[in-house]
Computed example of a mutant assay.
Amino acid sequence: MTTDWAQERILVFAPHPDDETLGCGGLLSKAKRAGAEVLVQFITVGDTADESAKGYSTAEERYAEIKKVSDHFRWDDWNMALPGDHFHLRLDTVAQVDLTQIIERESPISIARAQPTVVLAPHGSSYNQDHRAVARAVHTALRPSNTAVRHHPRLVLSYEEAADQWRTDPVASPSLIVELEEDDLDAKVEGMGLYGSQAHEHPHTRSEPTLRSLAVLRGMQAGVALGEGFHVARCLA
């Protein structure tokens, strides 16, 4: 499968700021460098416990990080759907129909409004309740239908994060590997570094060695030097 990323409009659903970089930062770098349009829909953010000197980061600090990362990757637009502590790390308490409506048509960069050709979303096997809630809602929003009635992106992928390997149910290896250049991996690592409140030293699932090691592993599985792995939900050739 060969994709001309220059022709694509990519919409990424990230439960929290940094998930898009951890899961598909290399692909976003590669696609944007080729000329793709990239939109990122964050779902929620709030005050977050971290390992900084004060022990937490505020939502305002997280917004500042998003702006730095957006400039770094040159995203065309981004949006935050449900800001605040009422939703952050509590998306499993939001009715799935409400979350699906935001993703499908209510957000300024919803599927119906943005009409992406490619959608990227978290994998439903994550231990994180917010990730699972977003994965289910995106899956529902992209349910099969008449294309004259509902927009159908040509390519729908679930991205992986190293932390997702912590699970009890077996999950197949990624079914699609996107080859990365060294510059794409460097852009991913640098982007994660701009999320200063969320980056960690090794050994940690969000450390630089972890990101580089996973890229080497996925690349090796496809016979190339570096790659990012994805699970295919839809691919219209």
Rank of each mutant, 00 (worst) to 15 (best):
Gly26Pro: 06
Leu27Tyr: 00
Leu28Val: 04
Leu28Asp: 02
Leu28Gln: 06
Ser29Asn: 13
Ala31Asn: 11
Ala31Phe: 03
Arg33Ile: 05
Ala36Met: 01
Val38Glu: 08
Val38Thr: 11
Leu39Pro: 00
Leu39Asp: 00
Val40Ala: 00
Val40Tyr: 00
Ile43Leu: 10
Thr44Ser: 13
Thr44Arg: 08
Thr44Cys: 04
Val45Ala: 12
Gly46Val: 05
Asp47Gly: 06
Asp50Asn: 15
Glu51Val: 14
Glu51Gln: 14
Glu51Met: 08
Ala53Gly: 14
Gly55Val: 04
Tyr56Cys: 03
Tyr56Ala: 08
Ser57Thr: 12
Glu60Met: 14
Glu60Gly: 15
Arg62Phe: 02
Tyr63Ala: 08
Tyr63Gly: 05
Tyr63His: 13
Tyr63Pro: 06
Glu65Leu: 14
Ile66Gly: 05
Ile66Lys: 13
Ile66Asp: 07
Lys67Val: 11
Lys67Ile: 05
Lys67Met: 03
Lys68Pro: 02
Val69Arg: 01
Val69Glu: 00
Ser70Gly: 06
Asp71His: 09
His72Phe: 07
His72Asn: 02
Phe73Pro: 09
Arg74Met: 06
Asp76Trp: 04
Asp77Val: 03
Trp78Leu: 05
Trp78Asn: 10
Trp78Ala: 04
Trp78His: 14
Trp78Lys: 11
Trp78Pro: 09
Trp78Glu: 04
Asn79Ser: 06
Ala81Met: 08
Ala81Trp: 00
Ala81Ser: 10
Pro83Glu: 02
Pro83Cys: 01
Asp85Asn: 13
Phe87Tyr: 14
Phe87Gln: 05
His88Phe: 03
His88Asn: 13
Leu89His: 10
Leu89Thr: 13
Leu89Asn: 10
Leu89Ser: 06
Arg90His: 14
Val94Cys: 10
Val94His: 12
Ala95Pro: 15
Ala95Glu: 13
Ala95Lys: 15
Gln96Asp: 09
Gln96Trp: 02
Val97Gln: 07
Val97Asp: 07
Val97Arg: 11
Asp98Ser: 13
Leu99Gln: 11
Leu99Val: 06
Thr100Cys: 04
Thr100Trp: 01
Gln101His: 07
Gln101Ala: 11
Ile102Pro: 03
